[in-house]
């Protein structure tokens, strides 16, 4: 019995890691292609991230003279590993995730922090002034986006405990009971505001423009990653793609956990293909989230200064998220029904 569980975990874990890397890189390619088309360029082919990874794998791995070598190498592995295991906890296309349990949403946030921290440690250990500045900036950014993110998650969990109850800090539970079904008008607006807040947090979480201060190419020459090359850089590169995919999947699970097969069943019989359509629909949702929270934002804005990042997150976005939370609370008391639901 234990052997079976172990086998399932190991095999499933390996499969999901491969799946995450594959789709992380695919979405990275799509993102680059769309940005290129927005800028009226041709852009690289969608398989370009794979070619990049293959090329980096073949390159020499240079270690700076004054670096702390084992930390320098280990942080790349930790970053990739921690990004890959996030997906073990997130329900994909409504399927029960491999690992889940009480309070796993808090765990997911911590794993996100671990992969960012691995980059910080790697940056500090590489002993370059640019990497040091980048590492400091990454820590500050981390501290600033966690607050609004926590507000969003707590708001959702609290509302869920009021309406349905159960294990409210479990992603799977949240995904099974979409909040949109059980709120009134104020709650609906509140959820929209929370969605906006988490969409703004996403580029910070993933270190993309306008919040890519830690890697700012023109300021500190890729910052954290300035000294990395070869296989280590490839691992950070993959980790970036996987994190993007994981973050978008998390938003999907929290806000859009719906499947398309129940709707389609009314018109055609899907049979065993239901799971395939659900999966494709899930990829579509992830794509839309990446398009609006990463691609469009990173193409359409200038990079902010680190002080402006902190004020944006701590004051503007936190206030917006808190306002969403307050609306959710009022929803319980006032209970105005949604106008379009009879």
């Amino acid at each position: 019995m234990t052997g079976e569980i172990l086998l399932k975990t190991v095999l499933g874990g390996a499969l999901i890691t491969l799946f995450a890397i594959f789709f992380g890189l695919i979405f990275k390619g799509i993102d680059r292609k769309i940005v290129a088309r927005m800028q009226m360029r041709v852009g690289p082919p969608i398989r370009q991230p794979f070619l990049d990874v293959i090329k980096l794998m073949n390159k020499e791995t240079v270690v700076p003279e004054n670096a702390i070598k084992w930390i320098y190498h280990a942080s790349a592995i930790v970053c990739l590993a921690s990004s890959a295991i996030i997906l073990l906890y997130i329900p994909i296309a409504g399927i029960e995730p491999l690992l889940h349990g009480h309070g796993d949403i808090i765990l997911i946030i911590y794993i996100f922090i671990i992969s960012a921290l691995a980059m910080v440690v790697g940056g500090f250990s590489s002993s370059s002034p640019f990497a040091t500045v980048g590492a400091q900036r990454e820590m500050i950014t981390m501290a600033s986006y966690e607050f609004p993110l926590a507000v969003v998650i707590i708001a959702i969990a609290w509302k869920l405990s009021e309406e349905i109850g159960g294990d409210v800090f479990s992603v799977y539970h949240i995904a099974q009971n979409p909040l949109w079904n059980s709120v009134g008008l104020l709650g609906f607006i509140g959820l929209l505001i929370l969605l906006f807040a988490i969409v703004v947090v996403t580029p910070g979480e993933l270190a993309k423009i306008p919040f890519d201060v830690a890697e700012a190419e023109t300021e500190i020459a890729q910052g954290l990653l300035v000294e990395y090359s070869g296989r280590n850089l490839a691992m950070f590169y993959i980790a970036d793609g996987v994190r993007t995919f994981a973050m978008a999947s998390l938003i999907t699970a929290l806000f859009f956990p719906y499947n398309i097969s129940p709707l389609l069943k009314n018109y055609i019989s899907l049979g065993d293909f239901a799971i395939v359509t659900d999966f494709l629909f899930f990829l579509l949702k992830v794509f839309l989230i990446i398009l609006f929270s990463v691609t469009l934002v990173r193409a359409g804005m200038a990079r902010l200064r680190i002080t402006q990042v902190v004020t944006t997150y701590w004051i503007t976005i936190t206030l917006i998220a808190l306002f969403g939370l307050v609306l959710l609370m009022w929803d319980n008391q006032l209970d105005i029904p949604l106008p379009w639901v009879g």
């Binding site: 800028q39 009226m40 423009i209 890519d212 190419e217 023109t218 359409g300 200038a302």
Partner: peptide, 16 residues
């Protein structure tokens, strides 16, 4: 200048 600000879309637009 747009590129220095990390605003590559504007760089491509202006150069177009």
């Amino acid at each position: 200048a747009a590129h220095e600000l990390g605003f590559d879309s504007l760089l491509h637009y202006v150069w177009m």
